[in-house]
Design a protein around this nucleic acid. Structure first.
Length: 676
DNA sequence: TTAGGGTTAG
């Protein structure tokens, strides 16, 4: 009986690695059972590190097994799969008679563990043993080149491959296409592909990936079409390859990926994951959530990648109930620890305004990276808890991790929202001096916002003028916004002038300027701006408020009457306004003054989208249930006052997330301290 | 043996 046949026979009797191990002891007593077969089988079954170590010690303790090359190779592979390439190396170094297979396994172990330099050094060592690399060696070392950005060595390998006549090998050709694609030498990748005598789906997908990572969606698409006409069926890998080209892209591109998904991918989890990611990366969170429910209806179980992709959509939509369900699923299916997934959970809770839940996940993490810290810092920042953000930022610095550029955007923004002028200035200083991070325009925008909100308008303006790059819309926007808060006409006009050049179609800036004029009682100028807007056909983006009630997200526009319970909603609002007036509420009836970021001028303030969403939540949920609103524009001053009063009248906690931040409103007070 | 799917700011 051959070894394979014996092994197959054994595998019918012993279905798990655990059973093999249990039988192992008896195998030494029973000469009819070969220890080699048993150990070999255990190693083939993806053993965990503990099982692996047991097998390893058995091998070491037996003279015959110790010199068995097949077991040695399997041990090397298994350690690599457990993320322990150093142990793989240790075994490799002990082998008496090395051959190309040992070298290939060693190189692959390093590459799979991202140790590209080490992999290339092992390749160099081949010459000392007079061993020639083969068609298994090159795909691996080519990957080491692209992984380490070592294009020069990549070119050398290509020359060696041609010299050895290995360029006609499918795997080597695929390796070359992938290497050139990842090193952004797309023309060379294409040349290799075109000259390959034989191609498979991996060849095509590697080319698609090359174009996609260079943002060339149309070329990637053309390759898909050639692939189809050559008789190859795109698969989940094709979709996954396309993904980098389909972020913030046109709706046509999204439609095409959807077509691929519908026709070639509905069977495979990876395709669902890609399609969800495409929706999320193109600001289509509702479609991502919808697709996820279809996926569940099809009986396809999500994995950690599905959920990490979907959680940002929950955050965007403030879909807390779905977010919580996902969290429960993660716990139930033991998907933790998983750094990316846990980071996504922290962020989801933060975006849903659940700071304590976010902190609980953060505190429970075994390993945290700079993304984890940044998510938590910005969670505090968004909620106006600047001091907590500063405290956590200081802990991040002490943790041994280095805050990166994004972490600094978060902390600067947190300082700005909380009016922490000195702390913000300090952070900007250490970013450049201590961490040697070159400030990007985002950092400057945060500083302008910080200085401007705090009333240091001249300093903010000087800061803008001293910037090493051309100020953009965000910079002037932050300055104009600050000028409105502090009624600074001179600087406000300068900022507005730039904004009308940079973004002439953005209605919001015209409104901000008209607010400044109105506050200065320059009514003629207010009228002029209104007429300019009318003549140019400039409209404000309509305000939309979302509220999650009974597992569904409802949208409201200003003056919305489309909801089936519209009559009850307006009746409730009337009752509330009555009570609010008793409590001293006076609507800001002067349109120019309250016209911050709000909806259509023709509609009365009481029917702003936030108010409708609040009234709907009140009649649809049990008393004292917290209300969570998400708005696509900044909350207007009148709605802020109204929400505070409603929280006092109804005893409800009201959380409003607008484009900038959170307002946690309770018992008549807001977490922003009216600083926003 | 080869490709390919995930998290953070503004």
């Amino acid at each position: 009986m051959t070894a394979v046949a014996k092994s197959n026979r054994l595998s019918r009797h012993f279905s798990t690695a655990h059973q093999y191990l249990q039988t192992l002891a008896s195998s030494f007593r029973n000469p009819n059972l070969l220890a080699e077969d048993l150990l070999s089988k255990v190693l083939d079954e993806d053993p965990g590190i503990k099982t692996l170590e047991k097998v390893h010690s058995k091998v070491i303790s037996d003279q015959n097994l110790c010199s068995n090359p097949s077991l040695a190779i399997k041990l090397m592979r298994a350690y690599s799969a457990c993320g322990q390439p150093n142990v793989t190396r240790h075994i490799f170094d002990e082998i008496a008679e090395l051959n190309i297979v040992f070298f290939n396994v060693m190189i692959r172990s390093y590459v799979n563990n991202h140790l590209y330099r080490e992999a290339l050094l092992v390749y160099q060592n081949l010459h000392n043993y007079n061993i020639s690399p083969d068609h298994y060696t090159f795909p691996c070392v080519l990957k080491a080149c692209s992984g380490s950005g070592n294009l020069r060595v990549g070119f050398q390998f290509h020359a060696v491959v041609v010299k050895k006549g290995l360029d006609s090998n499918l795997y080597v050709g695929n390796g070359l296409v992938a290497m050139y694609g990842k090193c952004d030498i797309i023309a060379d990748a294409r040349k290799v592909l075109d000259e390959m005598p034989k191609r498979d789906v991996v060849s095509w997908n590697s080319m698609v990936a090359g174009y996609a990572r260079n943002g060339r969606f149309n070329d990637a698409l053309d390759v898909c079409k050639i692939m189809l006409s050559s008789g190859f069926k795109p698969d989940a890998g094709t979709m996954a390859s396309l993904l980098p080209a389909v972020t913030n892209t046109s709706s046509d591109d999204v439609v095409f990926v959807k077509y691929m998904f519908e026709n070639y991918g509905r069977e495979c989890l990876v395709s669902w994951n890609v399609m969800i990611a495409v929706y999320v990366n193109n600001s289509m969170p509702a479609q991502a959530v919808e697709l996820y429910s279809q996926m569940q209806a099809c009986g396809i179980e999500p994995d950690a990648i599905t959920l990490s992709s979907l959680l940002p959509a929950c955050g965007d939509l403030s879909a807390l109930l779905l977010g919580r369900r996902i969290h429960e699923y993660v716990e139930r299916n033991r998907l933790r620890p998983n750094l990316l997934l846990e980071n996504a959970l922290v962020d989801m809770y933060a975006k849903c305004g659940c700071l304590s839940d976010a902190r609980e996940v953060f505190d429970g993490m075994e390993i945290r990276d700079v993304v984890s810290w940044t998510s938590m810092i910005s969670a505090y920042g968004m909620s106006g808890q600047g001091h907590n953000a500063v405290k956590l930022f200081s802990e991040l610095k002490d943790s041994g991790l280095n805050p990166d550029s994004i972490a600094f955007v978060s902390i600067l923004s947190a300082c700005s929202h909380a009016g922490l002028l000195d702390e913000g200035r300090f952070c900007f200083k250490i970013m450049t001096k201590e961490y040697r991070i070159v400030p990007r325009i985002e950092h400057f925008a945060c500083m302008v916002d910080l200085l401007g909100r705090a009333g240091k308008l001249n300093e903010a303006y000087s800061f803008v003028l001293s910037m090493p790059m051309e100020p953009n819309e965000r910079i002037w926007g932050a300055l104009l916004s600050a000028c409105r808060i502090h009624s600074n006409m001179d600087i406000g006009l300068v900022a507005a002038d730039h904004l009308f050049q940079l973004a002439p179609e953005q209605g919001g800036y015209y409104v901000l300027l008209s607010n400044i004029y109105a506050k200065a009682a320059r009514w003629e100028d207010v009228t002029t701006i209104r007429s300019i807007m009318k003549v140019r056909g400039i409209k404000k983006m309509p305000g939309v408020s979302n509220v999650e009630v009974n597992n569904r997200v409802y949208n409201f526009l200003a003056g919305d009457q489309s909801h089936p319970q519209s009559k009850e909603i307006y009746e409730e609002l009337d009752v509330l306004v009555g009570k609010m007036k008793e409590a001293g509420y006076a609507p800001e009836t002067d349109s120019a003054l309250h016209d911050l970021e709000e909806e259509d001028k023709g509609i009365h303030l009481t029917v702003h989208s936030e108010k409708l969403a609040i009234a709907f939540a009140i009649i649809s949920t049990k008393p004292l249930t917290p209300i969570r609103i998400t708005k696509n524009l900044r909350v207007c001053g009148d709605c802020h006052v109204a929400a505070k009063l409603i929280s006092k009248i109804t005893g409800r906690e009201i959380m409003v997330r607008d484009t900038n931040r959170f307002h946690h409103i309770q018992n008549g007070l807001c977490s922003c301290g009216d600083y926003w």
